[in-house]
């Protein structure tokens, strides 16, 4: 059953066409990873799926509802189930790490202080940052800020989670741990994941299905195995990062 789907979606910014005629279905409970060259529509596709970008043409269905026809009030309950982690995560500078995770939980108002603290500690520990509990975001490194952002997004138990390059700037050991954590929590909570990444190792590790965006179009979708063995030369060139091939390495 599809949780999100795009039909003939076209997105333009000013006169520039970013996405042209995309058809895509995301199934409930799957991990879909978007790959592709920089500046050719990966992030825009992610944002269109999450309803943040309004397409010029085509239809967007989220949870079987035609998204663009809904009022904001009707969208709200669905939006509450979504978690989005941006490339640059906006942490609260004046809160310590633990408070950063606890804050959105307090806003929900459904948990007691004790539960919130326990939950926040659990996620802080899960991203390997228990030692940084009482530090402020500007006292920790960029990689640690990234991990904190992930912990904060995950702590809300969203049903659909969007990740924009969740492991950029992380060393391979931490990156692997983060993806393991993301998969573990996904299985535990039966959530759906849509992620953009530039790291093929992480894509293979996370994805049930991979989609490659080139030049505003969806070139292919398939399992990691299918992607590795895909006959198209462009796919092969991209996943191996070769300089020679049909894709122009200049862009």
């Amino acid at each position: 059953m599809s949780i999100m789907s795009l039909q003939n979606v076209k997105v333009c910014f000013e006169s520039q066409v970013i996405l042209k005629s995309i058809n895509l279905e995301i199934k409930r409970g799957e991990a879909f990873v978007i790959i592709g060259p920089s500046g050719q529509g990966k992030t825009t596709l992610l944002k269109t799926l999450s309803g943040l970008v309004t397409p010029q043409n085509g239809k967007v269905f989220i949870e079987q509802k035609e998204w663009l026809t809904l009022s904001f009030k009707e969208q709200l309950p669905v939006l509450r189930k979504m978690g989005i982690l941006f490339q640059k995560n906006a942490l609260f500078d004046s809160f310590t790490c633990i408070e950063n995770i606890a804050f959105p939980l307090q806003e929900l108002g459904t948990l007691t202080e004790r539960e919130i603290e326990k939950k926040a500690e659990y996620f802080l520990d899960a991203v390997g940052m228990a030692h940084a509990r009482d530090l402020f975001p500007d006292e920790i490194s960029g990689g640690m800020q990234k991990r904190l952002g992930i912990a904060r997004a995950l702590a809300l138990d969203p049903e659909i989670i969007f990740y924009d390059d969740p492991t950029a700037g992380l060393d391979p050991i931490t990156a692997k741990k983060i993806i393991d954590l993301i998969i573990f929590l996904k299985n535990q909570q039966d959530s759906t994941i849509v992620a953009v990444t530039n790291d093929m190792n992480r894509a293979y590790q996370l994805a049930d299905r991979i989609g490659m965006v080139i030049d505003g179009g969806l070139l292919m979708t398939g399992t990691p195995e299918e992607t590795r063995n895909h006959p198209d030369l462009r796919v092969q060139q991209f996943i191996h990062g070769n300089l020679t091939g049909p894709l122009n390495a200049m862009t």
Partner: peptide, 17 residues
């Protein structure tokens, strides 16, 4: 002039800062 350049120049802590 002094206050605005001083405050801008010594900003810390991202967009919030």
């Amino acid at each position: 002039a002094t206050v605005s350049t001083y405050k801008g120049f010594t900003t810390t802590g991202g967009a919030k800062g």
